[in-house]
Design a protein around this nucleic acid. Structure first.
Lengths: 209, 209
DNA sequence: CCATCCTTGTTGTAAATACAACTGTATTAT
DNA sequence: ATAATACAGTTGTATTTACAACAAGGATGG
C-alpha cells in the first residue's frame, strides 16, 4: 500500500497514520474487470474511490446512446468524491472499469467524521484541482471545430507532460467521446494535421511539431 | 451584511462569528462597474470573491478573440476559489463585472489559517457542488447539435427552478458563448423550436412545453 | 494457427454550423 | 426628444461535421 503514500489525499501522513485512517473510514479494496460498472448513474453514492492500479472512467450515456467520457482516471486518482459530497439521488454519471483495476472504496461520511485537519484540507485541494481540470476541459469543448478542440487538448497534455512527445490514455473512440465529436471525423482531422506537418502520431503516442 | 447569513461558506455561523472571520481573513468590499475586470487571466490570485450584489462572469478569451463564458455568478456565489487554491501563475480565466456589482474579496491563505472546522467543511461542499455544476455543463457541451445543447441546458434550468417557466441570466450572445455556439445559429434554432411548439420564450424568459 | 473481434483510417453524402451582412426593435445616453 | 448603441432575429453561402458503410491491420482467444 505504499502507493497511497504518494496519494494527494494522504499527503503529509505517515504509513501508520494512513492505515489507521483507512480502518476508521472502513476502506475496502475491490478488483474490477474491464467494462464492469463500479458506480451506476442512478444510485445515491455513499462512497468514493481511489484507483490503486489499472484505470477507470467517468462516463455519461445519454438517451440516444451517445457516450461522453468525462475523464479516464489512473493510479492514485480519486473518483466520485464530488458526487458523494453532493448527496444527489441521481448523478447521471457511471464509473466504469477501463483496464483491470484495483480500487480502494471509502465511505465519505466516515471520512468527514475523522478528526484530521490535514485530510480535510487535502481533500479540499483535490476538489480545487478537479475544478481547474474541468474548467480546462470546458475550454476544449467550447472550441468551434474538431481541429481546435483537438489541438487545445493536445497542447495542454504537452504542457502537463512538459514535453511535446507524450502518450494519451485514450484510444480513438475514447478520445472522440472525451472531446464530444464523431470518431471518424476525428480520425480524418488527425490525418489532415499529420499531412500538414502539425503533428505526428501513432496509436496513442503523439508528437507536436 | 445579512446577505452573508445565507451564504454557503458561512452556513452554521452567527452574524458575530461571520464578522469575526471576515476581520481575520482581511475581507474587503469593492464595487465594480459593467465590463470592469476583477481578476485578470495572467495573475497568480491570492484572493477569491463573494458576489454581494449585481453579477460577474467567469470568461475565457482565446487567441482568435472567441469568448467562452464559464458561468454568470450572482448574489452569494463564490468565484476564483478553485484557482486561488491551485496556486497557478496563469489561470487563463478572467472575472469580469457583468452588472454593477458589490464584491467581498477574501485572502484564501488567511482563510486556511483560521481554526474553524465548519468554514473549511463548507468550502469543501462549495467546491464539490461547483464540480457537479461543471460536470453538468460538460454534458451540454458534449452534445452534438445546438438543439441538444440548448435543450439539455434549459431542462436543467427548469429542474433547478422547479418550474418549466424561468428566467436565465444570459442574453443571446452570452448564452451562445456559454454553450460554445454561434449566436445567429442559436437564434435560428430557438425560432425553430418555438415554431415546433417545444418551447416559448421572450428575451431571457423561457417556458418549456 | 486460424477465426473472430477490435481498432483505425477512408470516403461519400446529407445535415448542421459558422460566418457575414442586414433589418428592425429596444435600450441608453445626451 | 433624438441620436447612438446594443440586442435579437433572418437569410444565404461556404465550411464543417455526423453518420454510415467499408477495408486493412492488429490483437486476442481458443
Amino acid at each position: 500500500m505504499e502507493i497511497l503514500l504518494k496519494n494527494e489525499l494522504f499527503k503529509g501522513l505517515s504509513l501508520d497514520d494512513i492505515n489507521k485512517v483507512i480502518e476508521e473510514v472502513e476502506g475496502i479494496i475491490k478488483i474490477f474487470h474491464k467494462n464492469e460498472v463500479i458506480i451506476t448513474p442512478k444510485e445515491k453514492i455513499k462512497v468514493f474511490g481511489i484507483v490503486l492500479s489499472g484505470s477507470v472512467m467517468g462516463v455519461h450515456n445519454d438517451y440516444w446512446g451517445h457516450r461522453t467520457i468525462l475523464k479516464i482516471l489512473e493510479e492514485n486518482e480519486l473518483f466520485g468524491e464530488a458526487f458523494s459530497f453532493s448527496q444527489l439521488d441521481n448523478t447521471g454519471i457511471s464509473i466504469v472499469c477501463n483496464k483491470e483495476a484495483k480500487v480502494l472504496l471509502i465511505n465519505f461520511e466516515k471520512l468527514l467524521e475523522i478528526d484530521n485537519r490535514k485530510i480535510i484540507q487535502n481533500m479540499m485541494m483535490i476538489l480545487a484541482s478537479k475544478n481547474v481540470f474541468l474548467t480546462r476541459k470546458m475550454e476544449y469543448l467550447s472550441k468551434r471545430s474538431i481541429k481546435d478542440k483537438l489541438l487545445s487538448y493536445l497542447s495542454d497534455e504537452a504542457m502537463n507532460n512538459k514535453s511535446n512527445k507524450f502518450y494519451i490514455p485514450y484510444n480513438r473512440q475514447e478520445l472522440a467521446d472525451f472531446l464530444g465529436v464523431d470518431r471518424s471525423a476525428l480520425s480524418s482531422e488527425l490525418s489532415k494535421l499529420k499531412a500538414e506537418g502539425i503533428l505526428n502520431f501513432n496509436k496513442n503516442y503523439f508528437e507536436l511539431l
